[in-house]
Amino acid sequence: MTTNKPSFSYFKVLVLGQLPRFTLNYFGTDFTDNYVESIDDEFRKTLKFGQLPLFVDSDGFRLTQTDAICKYIAAKHDFLGKSIKERAIVDETIAAVHDDVIIPGYKVGKGVEDKKVIDTIISRHFTTFENVLAENKFIAGGDNYTLADLYVFVAYHYYKHLGHSEKFQNKFPHLEALQAHFESNKGIAEYIKNRPDSGRGI
């Protein structure tokens, strides 16, 4: 069986594609990152449900759902928590970040959701994340970083990228420390520096 480099395909916009891209880069994975302009009919036929993202591992194993991709990569690096309960909190955090933070933030950035949503998310979700970090040091409550921490970092980083930095000022010291931790990672620093601009700010 031919072994190729893993590959990841998604559009230039950050939204959901940034989660697997941050995860892959955090672990220094040598992978082909395909920034897709559009999906033509030929390409669509190869995609489950005709949608991106698409991750293909070196052995040809394919996944098409954002969180499933991130969890698969994280599992390979023992980054999902050490107990069933810790893993459940990782799952819970992934769902909250994906559905309740990233997607609404994207919709506001795109102009299809009321900007007031941002204040609600900051007061509810980011405050909860801050409180959890103040109490536990790690989001999933264990003794080390997990994918839950990475997801919370991505959400925090994304909201700053979307132009909401002033809403965070001096309010979230533990989230600031989390951001500093992940941005000091070589793979993540390079990804942030080199990723293409979508031209749409989202």
Partner: peptide
């Protein structure tokens, strides 16, 4: 991989 397929 099975676990990832379940998630997917």
């Amino acid at each position: 991989q099975e676990s990832a397929r379940v998630d997917d």
